[in-house]
Design a protein around this nucleic acid. Structure first.
Length: 111
DNA sequence: AACCTGACGGACA
DNA sequence: CTGTCCGCCAGGT
C-alpha cells in the first residue's frame, strides 16, 4: 500500500531533473520535517521504480546511500551507473560532485 | 497501543 | 579520518 507520506516523497523526487541528485535530508526538509530516515524507508519500498527516480536520492555526505533495498553490493554499482549515464559527475573518492546536487525551489508545505 | 526497525544525519570521541 | 551514539518519524508487527 502507498501511504500519503510515500506519495509526497515520490512526487518530490520526481521533480529532480536528469543529471542532478538530491539527498534524503534535503527531500525531508522539502516536505517540511526532519525525517530523512522515513524518506529512506519510503524509497526503499518504492513500487514505482524506475518511473520514480529513486536512484537520484543519495546520502547527505554525497555517498550513494542504498538502492533496491541494499546499502552495498552490485545494486549500488547499478545505481552509480544510472547516475553517470544521466550526467552526474563522480569525484575520485566516489562521492557525487556537489555541483550536481539539485536545489528544490519551493516547498509544498508552508512557504 | 506498545515496540521494533531502518536506502538518515549530525554530534562527538 | 573512522566508529558510536542518539534523535528523528513513518510503517509494519
Amino acid at each position: 500500500m502507498v501511504t500519503a507520506f510515500q506519495q509526497r516523497v515520490y512526487d518530490a523526487i520526481s521533480t529532480i531533473p536528469r543529471g542532478k541528485v538530491s539527498t534524503y535530508g534535503l527531500v525531508a526538509g522539502h516536505l517540511g520535517c526532519n525525517c530523512a530516515q522515513a524518506v529512506g524507508q519510503a524509497l526503499r519500498r518504492n513500487p514505482y521504480a524506475p518511473r520514480v527516480p529513486c536512484h537520484r536520492v543519495i546520502a547527505s555526505d554525497r555517498t550513494l546511500g542504498g538502492f533496491s533495498g541494499k546499502r552495498s553490493g552490485p545494486q549500488l554499482r547499478r545505481k552509480r551507473r544510472l547516475l553517470v549515464k544521466e550526467g552526474v559527475v563522480f569525484r575520485p573518492d566516489g562521492r557525487v560532485d556537489p555541483a550536481c546536487v539539485h536545489r528544490f525551489s519551493r516547498r509544498p508545505r508552508d512557504p
